[in-house]
């Protein structure tokens, strides 16, 4: 199922931010809720039927959820992890905090936050895209940048002004 994760789904082992490119927070949380509702484990076909989404659309969401360590995918069976149970019982604030820790550790994401920290000034979109292009190739850099801004905003680690196209670090509110 996943091309970037490994089977035990530990987030620390993952390097690439790319599963997030087309996935939203709501979709991942919705998926976790759906699997919880059918008892915490299900095969992909059942989930696909349950949530009325074909595997084409479900695939990236599963990838991203696995990547975050929220589920494990093994021989077509999707299983909830302790982390996702914790996430389900948490409120909006706590959910953000949990996801923040994971996102912050993703190397691609780290690369950008480190860059911003070192620069000590706002980074421009152009700079970041260039840095990302060197890493993943230019055709994916723009998508990746969009995904990073989206998730970085969600976990309150990044602030991005799309008018001046400048990215700054942000301290999460408590």
């Amino acid at each position: 199922m996943s091309n970037s994760g490994n089977d035990d789904g530990r987030p620390g082992m993952l390097t690439d931010f790319h599963p997030f490119a087309k996935v939203s927070v709501g979709q991942i949380l919705g998926l976790v809720e759906a699997i919880d509702e059918v008892g915490g484990v299900a095969d992909v076909a059942t989930i696909s039927q349950e949530v009325e989404m074909d595997v084409d659309r479900l695939g990236p969401i599963l990838d991203a959820a696995e990547f975050l360590g929220l589920m494990t995918v093994h021989e077509g069976d999707v299983r909830m992890t302790d982390l996702s149970r914790k996430l389900l019982s948490a409120n909006v604030r706590e959910r953000k905090a949990i996801l923040r820790e994971i996102i912050d550790d993703i190397p691609d994401f780290r690369m950008i936050t480190d860059m911003a920290r070192k620069a000590g000034r706002p980074l421009t979109r152009k700079e970041i895209i260039e840095a990302l292009s060197a890493h993943v190739g230019s055709h994916r850099a723009a998508d990746l940048f969009k995904a990073m801004v989206y998730w970085g905003r969600y976990v309150e680690l990044l602030r991005y002004d799309s008018q001046s196209e400048e990215l700054t670090l942000r301290t999460p509110s408590k």
Partner: peptide, 21 residues
């Protein structure tokens, strides 16, 4: 904004958001 979990997106424009957001 905080109550609906959108803190972090204050400066974003609608086109930068997913449908749920």
């Amino acid at each position: 904004i905080d109550a609906v979990g959108l803190t972090g997106f204050e400066d974003a424009f609608p086109r930068e958001l997913s449908g749920g957001m």
